[in-house]
Amino acid sequence: MAEVRLASIRKAFGGNVVVDGLDLTVSDREFLTLVGPSGCGKSTTLRLVSGLDQMTSGQVYFDDQPVGHLPPNKRDVAMVFQSYALYPHRTVAQNIGFALRMMRVPKPDIDQRVHRTAEALNISELLDRKPRELSGGQRQRVALGRAIIRDAGAYLLDEPLSNLDAQLRGDMRVELKRLHAELNRTFIYVTHDQVEAMTMSDRIAVLNHGVLQQCAPPEQIYQRPANTFVAAFMGSPPMNFFTGQLVDSDGERFFRGKACAVPLTPEAAHVAQSLPDGEVVLGIRPEDVTLSNGSGALRGKVFVAEPLGADVLVTVDLGGELVKSRVPAPFRTSIDSTVGVLLDPARIHLFSAADGTALHSPTTT
């Protein structure tokens, strides 16, 4: 088994700092996902754990043992890459068993473990085929088989599903989650796809410009984001944001922005008491924005409506600011038609306008 700990990891390519002072512990048998935009340092972090890249400073520990000085083949890890990197002239069975042959494992043992691995990945009927005869999903399963046959302490997966179509990605997410439970090993997974991160992970580590923004279970990442970057990145569509001020009116505390005025709940007002009367950012998820002509509704014009199947994503122009609402289908309206918009006061987030730090999140229901 393997607990993986990164202590003050820094990686620079010349003057370009890709990973900047990263402290992160991945618990034994945990499924942790590194997520963030392109260039945020997530793949580089995985390569530092594997030993494929060397750190500028800091240390990587496996079960409290420093491994920064060890080459990749001396670390108890197996890696799956975005590109399948299969040997085209070898069969599926030979590709899966290649690492064991390099380790001089006896052939009967290799054959037994190859067949067991193929059964786990539902590719037993493909063992005699060459990679060119396989679909993208089948090749990905072979690449996974080549990794898991090693029985490593930790499995490192670098965007392994990004080359698959949407349906195959969904199928493979289920397979990977099941595989993690069966192997009972540490998984560190890299993706830019927040759906993969939310559905598969025990915890998610969000990176931006090589700096860890937040590391928490998926529900906490979504419901209690640490800052505006996490709130915007983890959510499809992202959270709505309004910049404004906290003001008092008739004994109540309000958020007042260019397009809206929202009363604060007692919990939010309590937090707001300690804040100076300066700018803050109000955030609210699209599912907490309803379209209604009820009391207190803001008036806006439909900018666009995007059917999503069971839901419709409606973007409304509120006096020059766009707000997105996720409403149940069917929703039929025309562009520029007037609608009422209600922001649920119990579901608002407050962030510092200065640095984006979270000041208040709604109580989880």
Rank of each mutant, 00 (worst) to 15 (best):
M1S: 14
A7S: 14
R10I: 13
G15M: 07
G21I: 09
S27G: 13
D28P: 00
R29N: 05
L32C: 09
V35I: 12
V35E: 03
P37W: 08
K42D: 06
T44S: 10
V49L: 14
S50H: 07
G51Q: 09
Q54Y: 00
F62S: 08
D63W: 07
V67Q: 12
H69G: 12
R75A: 08
D76N: 12
V77F: 11
M79G: 03
V80G: 02
V80M: 01
Q82N: 08
H89P: 02
N95Q: 06
N95I: 06
G97A: 13
L100Y: 07
R101Y: 01
V105S: 08
V105L: 12
K107T: 14
P108E: 10
D111N: 14
L121H: 03
L126F: 11
R132N: 12
S135T: 04
R139N: 06
V142A: 02
A143D: 00
L144N: 03
G145I: 05
A147T: 13
A147V: 14
A147G: 05
I149H: 10
I149L: 06
D151M: 06
A152C: 09
G153Y: 07
A154E: 08
Y155P: 01
D158V: 11
E159Y: 05
P160I: 12
P160N: 09
L161D: 00
Q167S: 07
G170A: 15
G170I: 12
R173M: 03
R178M: 07
L179W: 04
H180K: 02
E182W: 00
T186E: 02
Q194Y: 07
E196Q: 05
M198K: 01
M200W: 07
M200K: 01
H209G: 05
G210V: 08
L212H: 03
L212R: 02
P218T: 09
Y222M: 11
R224N: 09
T228I: 05
F229W: 03
F233Y: 08
P238D: 00
Q245F: 10
D248Q: 14
D250V: 13
E252P: 00
G257K: 11
A259N: 11
A259G: 04
T265S: 10
P266E: 11
V271R: 10
V271C: 12
A272K: 07
Q273P: 00
G278A: 12
E279R: 06
V280K: 10
V281Q: 15
S292H: 07
N293C: 03
S295A: 15
G296V: 10
G300I: 14
V302I: 15
V302N: 09
V302A: 11
V304F: 09
L308P: 00
G309Y: 11
T315G: 00
T315Q: 14
V316Y: 10
G320A: 11
E321K: 15
V323F: 06
K324N: 13
K324M: 14
R326N: 08
R326K: 15
F331R: 03
I335Q: 14
I335V: 15
S337P: 00
T338R: 15
T338F: 14
D344E: 14
P345V: 13
S352Y: 01
D355F: 11
G356W: 01
T357R: 13
T357M: 08
H360E: 08
H360P: 02
T363G: 10
T365C: 01
